[in-house]
Structures are given as structure tokens and as C-alpha cells.
Design a protein around this nucleic acid. Structure first.
Length: 291
DNA sequence: AAGATTAGCAACCGCAAGTAC
DNA sequence: AGTACTTGCGGTTGCTAATCT
């Protein structure tokens, strides 16, 4: 009997007809009573599945298929530092974004960082080509795509500008790139919050863990040595427990509390110097970053 | 052209809190 | 007060498209 019930329960991708049924139900009864959709025989989906589909895909005003803007990225980074992995809460600050969107965005960046750090450890012993995905790829060069706090999460491609030439080329994301990033990070005067690394002694357990985060970032001893060569006083502030500096940016308010015009990131600077830094930071975003 | 790799996304699962009875 | 059910959240998994060798 139970087995029959499970067989009847549909899983997997939603069809347009199912979406239509779900939308009709919501239009009629509102976004609630999800379980009744099945009990009425409208859909062979669980209430949870129906709710998820509505929240993540069918709800009006969703920015589906639209990449995170620079401002959205910055908001996520700032809020993650403040709230931790409270994706639903973070999503309330991002109109049109769901907790799933934010979660996916964050995890993809974490994965990228993990790969970069892993590659850097390999590169410290023997040079390794960049990821296949990016090697030789004709990627539009960008500079400081991510806010300083997030730069450790990794530009895979970076514009290389010399004094004599402004031409750019794509380089593999080498260990020296990370050193540059770490330097930029420290030069910006911004320290990462709530993301201390710790190092185990067991080689198999040598991956440190980012506090307050489920994801495990492989950070090999070689990588640490590499960065230690920076001889930079901020190095351990970047990767270790931060002194929790004042944030350069005030967080936007939850979008349901403020009209759109007021939902901008505002600089909260303790003094002119910090404000200037913040402006410089904003200038790092290329104009065409924003759709 | 085929296979391998990666990132992004959609959906599922387990758990916890809230609610109704 | 206890139980069952519903809802919401966060973590995880699996699929697909894009890209590279």
C-alpha cells in the first residue's frame, strides 16, 4: 500500500501543465494549503514540492535566468558575513531572489574558492594548467569584479595591465594571482569577517573549515605557506579570525520594508578616509557590470 | 565528433518550528 | 498536554548546458 502511494507520487522536473495547475490553485486559494493540492487529486506532488515550485519558480516578480548583479553579489557577501547561512533571511534583502538562488550562488563561489586553493597548492610544487573550463577561454577581462571581501573567492580571469600596455590577456589562476588578490584585499583595508580558517594535523583532515559555514574549503598547508610569504601584516587577518573591522557599507534594508528607491547600498563611513575608500571600491566595478 | 570536466540550476530530503485538533 | 500535520529552511544531490581536450 505504502509502496503504491510512493509510486504514484511524482518527482523530478515539473511540466508546464503541472505549473498551470499549481498557478491556478494559488490564484484561487493563495499560496497555502499545499497539501490539499494532492488530496484534491490536482497533482501527484507532495505539498512540499508544490510550495517549493511556487516559491522558487512560479512566484511573480522572480528574476529567474538573470545573473546576480554586482550589487546583489555584494549584498549577499555582506549579509552572509553578518547572518551566516541564513539564506531565506538574506533573500529578503534581494527583490526577486529566492533563498535557493542565494544558496546556489554562494555555494558555487565556495566551490570555486576550494578549487582555486587546491590548484594553488599544486602550483606551489609543480605548475599546473588552469581549469579546463577557463583555459584559453575568450572571457571578457574584468578587474575587481568582486568586492574586496570576496576577491578571495576568486577571479579566474584577470586583467593584467602593465605600465606600458593596457592590453589584457587571460592568465591561468596561479598562486601569484592569489597573492595579488590577498594583497589587494589587505590594501583595501577590509578584513574578512567570521571566516577563520583552522588547520588540522591529520593530513586527511587538513582541510580547514570556515566557521559558521557548512562548506569545507580545502586549504592545503602549501597554500598557507604561499600566502605566508606575503610577509603582510594583514595576512592572518584575512585568513584568520578577523578583528571585525567596521563594515564599509551599510546593508540594504529588506526589500519588503523599503521602497525600491531606498534600497540602495549606502556608505556608512566613520570618516572621510573610509568614505573615499568606499568610493574607490565602487569605482572598481566596471560600468557594464550592471544589466 | 566524442568524451571529460565544470558551473549553474532545479528539486529532493531531513529537520525544526508552528498550528490545529 | 500530546499528537499529527503543515510549513519553512538549509544542506545535498542530480541533471544539463557549456566548454575544453
Amino acid at each position: 500500500m505504502e509502496a503504491v502511494k510512493k509510486e504514484e507520487m511524482k518527482k523530478g522536473p515539473w511540466k508546464a501543465e503541472e505549473d498551470e495547475v499549481l498557478i491556478n490553485h494559488v490564484n484561487r486559494y493563495g499560496p497555502r494549503d499545499w497539501s490539499s493540492i494532492r488530496s484534491k487529486g490536482l497533482l501527484q506532488r507532495t505539498g512540499k514540492s508544490c510550495r517549493l515550485r511556487w516559491v522558487n519558480k512560479l512566484r511573480p516578480n522572480l528574476k529567474s535566468g538573470c545573473k546576480f548583479s554586482a550589487e546583489e553579489e555584494r549584498t549577499v557577501i555582506e549579509l552572509q558575513a553578518e547572518f551566516g547561512n541564513k539564506w531565506a533571511r538574506i533573500a529578503t534583502y534581494l527583490p526577486g531572489r529566492t533563498d535557493n538562488d542565494v544558496k546556489n550562488f554562494w555555494s558555487s563561489r565556495v566551490k570555486r574558492l576550494a578549487r582555486i586553493l587546491h590548484n594553488s597548492s599544486d602550483a606551489s610544487t609543480s605548475p599546473k594548467p588552469p581549469s579546463r573550463r577557463n583555459k584559453g577561454k575568450n572571457v571578457k577581462p574584468i578587474q575587481c569584479f568582486y568586492p574586496p571581501q570576496f576577491q578571495s573567492f576568486g577571479l579566474v580571469e584577470e586583467e593584467v595591465t602593465t605600465a606600458s600596455s593596457s592590453s589584457s590577456k587571460i592568465l591561468p589562476y596561479s598562486s601569484s594571482d592569489q597573492v595579488d588578490e590577498a594583497l589587494r584585499l589587505s590594501e583595501s583595508g577590509i578584513k574578512l569577517e567570521h571566516q577563520p580558517f583552522s588547520f588540522g594535523t591529520d593530513p586527511l583532515m587538513s582541510e580547514p573549515h570556515i566557521a559558521n559555514q557548512q562548506a569545507t574549503i580545502p586549504f592545503y598547508p602549501e597554500s598557507r605557506e604561499l600566502l605566508a610569504r606575503l610577509d603582510n601584516p594583514y595576512y592572518y587577518d584575512i585568513l584568520g579570525p578577523a578583528g571585525c573591522s567596521e563594515p564599509l557599507f551599510a546593508l540594504p534594508q529588506p526589500f519588503f520594508e523599503l521602497p525600491p528607491a531606498e534600497r540602495r547600498c549606502r556608505h556608512v563611513s566613520k570618516d572621510d578616509e573610509e568614505e573615499e575608500e568606499a568610493d574607490v571600491f565602487l569605482d572598481d566595478f566596471p560600468a557594464d557590470m550592471f544589466d
